[in-house]
Amino acid sequence: TDVTFHVNGRNLHLKGADEELLRRIEELIRRGADIEELEKAVKEWEK
């Protein structure tokens, strides 16, 4: 799945995201995470 999140005026584009990653990103956004936290979560998922 390709999806782009718009967070605090910045874009986080995910290519090939699975349901697990999407749920994790949505949860972080609900908690008020900043873009750096979201990018870190994506990097951890990519490993």
Rank of each mutant, 00 (worst) to 15 (best):
I35K: 01
E39I: 13
E20T: 14
E36W: 09
W45C: 03
R31Q: 11
E36T: 07
I35Q: 02
G32Q: 05
K15R: 12
G16F: 06
A41D: 04
W45S: 06
I29T: 02
R24N: 07
V42N: 01
L12N: 00
L12E: 00
E20C: 13
E44H: 11
R24M: 11
E27S: 14
R30F: 10
A17V: 10
E37M: 12
E20L: 14
T1Y: 15
E27L: 15
E27W: 15
K47R: 13
V7R: 01
L22Y: 05
G9W: 03
T1R: 15
V7S: 02
L28G: 03
E27F: 15
K47F: 13
G9I: 02
R24G: 05
E44Q: 11
R31H: 10
L21G: 01
I25F: 04
E20H: 12
V3Q: 04
G16A: 07
R30E: 07
I25Q: 00
K47M: 13
E19D: 11
R23L: 08
V3S: 02
E19Q: 13
K43R: 12
K47P: 10
A41G: 03
W45H: 10
G32S: 04
E44I: 13
E26K: 15
H6N: 10
G32A: 03
I29F: 10
G32K: 05
H6I: 14
R24Y: 11
V3D: 04
D18N: 12
R10W: 13
N8F: 03
K15A: 04
D2G: 05
H6W: 12
E46H: 12
E37F: 09
R10C: 10
F5I: 15
I29P: 00
W45T: 04
K15W: 07
L12V: 02
H6S: 08
H13M: 09
L28A: 06
K47V: 11
D18G: 11
E27K: 12
H6T: 12
R10Y: 14
D18R: 05
V7N: 02
E36L: 07
R23K: 10
A33N: 06
L21Q: 03
V42S: 03
I25S: 00
E27G: 12
N8R: 06
G9V: 02
R10E: 12
A41T: 11
R30A: 10
E26F: 15
D2C: 15
R24D: 05
T4V: 13
G9K: 01
E44R: 09
L21R: 01
K43P: 02
